[in-house]
């Protein structure tokens, strides 16, 4: 993937986050929708802006930690509305 395509994806994901936030969703549903989008943006930045795609083993490690971190954030976000 080129960096220009990565940028287009990042702008698209940011627009999608804004749409979800403006849609009136709140509480656990907003967290469950918006935080994975943030995780995807992080994944794109790590792999294509920071070029971790060139080091696949390390990229996998970063993706795993990022995924766990997003899951933790979702869990903490859901608790107040549970």
């Amino acid at each position: 993937m080129t960096v220009t395509r990565a940028w287009i994806i990042l702008v698209g994901l940011s627009a999608l986050s804004t749409l979800v936030a403006a849609s009136g969703l709140d509480g656990r549903w907003l967290a469950a929708a918006v935080l994975p989008l943030a995780g995807l943006k992080g994944h794109v930045i790590l792999n294509y802006y920071l070029q971790l795609a060139l080091a696949p083993e390390i990229a996998r490690g970063f993706s795993l930690v990022l995924g766990l971190f997003i899951a933790l954030l979702i869990g903490l976000s859901i608790l107040p509305s549970a």
Partner: peptide
């Protein structure tokens, strides 16, 4: 220098939804 800049970018995309949207 660009790697530092991307780190700043990465932190913001994680910080923004947590502080501003949720």
């Amino acid at each position: 220098g660009a790697a530092f800049w991307h780190m700043v970018d990465l932190v913001w995309v994680l910080l923004f939804p947590v502080v501003y949207l949720l």
